[in-house]
C-alpha cells in the first residue's frame, strides 16, 4: 500500500468508506442498538470467523443470523449496501485491535480445510495462493507489488471497485485471476479460508474500513 493510500485510509475526512460507515451507524441504531450497544462490539471483528453451533461463520453471516433468527427479517444479500455498511460499522469498533482468532479443538477441522485450500493449486493457471502470497510477496505482478494477503481491513474501500467490498469479493477476484471457478458468496470453503487468513494475520492490527488501490 502506498503512502497516499494509507493517508487516505487513516483520515476520516478522506476515507470514502465513511459514506458506508454512516449508513451502517443509522442501520445499527434503527435495528440493532436496542439489544446491542455498539460499545459492546469492540474487538468482536478481530475474533471472527467464529463457531456458532459447531458451524464456522464470518461476521456477515453472524449479522444475518441475528436478522433471520432474532428479528425474523429476511437476510441481507451478500455484498448488499446494507450488509457491507453494518459489517463495516461493527468492524470499525475494533480498529486498532490485534487480530486474535484462536485455533481450538472445535474449529481445527475448519482451519485445516482452509489451510489446505490456501496450499491447493487451482484454476487453468494452476496456481495456489501460497505461491504468490507466501513465496513471492514483494515481487511484481503486472506492475503491482504482490502483497502478503493479510485481511486486516475488510470490508474495505477498493479504489478499483469504486466502492466497499467484502473479503469474499476479493477472494473471488483472486480465483478469477487464476482462472478458477470461484466459490459462491458465503460458501463454507470461503469461510474456512477466511479463518486461515485471519489466523495467518494474527497479532496484526485491524484497520477496518481500510482503503486499498
Amino acid at each position: 500500500m502506498g503512502r497516499e493510500t494509507r493517508a487516505m485510509q487513516d483520515d476520516d475526512g478522506f476515507n470514502p468508506a465513511v459514506l458506508w460507515l454512516l449508513d451502517g451507524e443509522s442501520l445499527w441504531k434503527a435495528n440493532c442498538a436496542a439489544c446491542h450497544p455498539i460499545e459492546k462490539m469492540k474487538g468482536v471483528a478481530a475474533r471472527y470467523p467464529a463457531l456458532h453451533r459447531k458451524r464456522l461463520i464470518n461476521l456477515e453471516q453472524r449479522i444475518n443470523l441475528c436478522r433471520t433468527e432474532q428479528q425474523k427479517a429476511p437476510a441481507f444479500a451478500y455484498e448488499s449496501r446494507e450488509l457491507l455498511s453494518l459489517t463495516a460499522h461493527v468492524g470499525r469498533q475494533s480498529r486498532g485491535h490485534p487480530i486474535s482468532v484462536e485455533i481450538s479443538d472445535g474449529n481445527r477441522s475448519f482451519f485445516e480445510a482452509g489451510k489446505a485450500l490456501f496450499h491447493r493449486r487451482q484454476g487453468q493457471l494452476n496456481l495456489a495462493c501460497v505461491q504468490c502470497h507466501d513465496e513471492r510477496w514483494g515481487k511484481s505482478l503486472a506492475g503491482t507489488t504482490i502483497p502478503q494477503a493479510h485481511p486486516t481491513g475488510y470490508p474495505l474501500y477498493r479504489l478499483e471497485w469504486q466502492g466497499v467490498g467484502s473479503l469474499q469479493r476479493r477472494l473471488r477476484n483472486c480465483m478469477i485471476g487464476v482462472r478458477a471457478e470461484p466459490y459462491a458468496y458465503g460458501s463454507d470453503e470461503f469461510v474456512e479460508l477466511e479463518l486461515y487468513l485471519m489466523w495467518r494475520a494474527r497479532g496484526m492490527k485491524l484497520e477496518t474500513p481500510a482503503v486499498r488501490p
Binding site: F14, P16, L159, Q162, G163
Partner: peptide, 8 residues
Amino acid sequence: VAANPLIS
C-alpha cells in the same frame, strides 16, 4: 471523475 468524488 470516479465514484464518490472527493473535492479538497
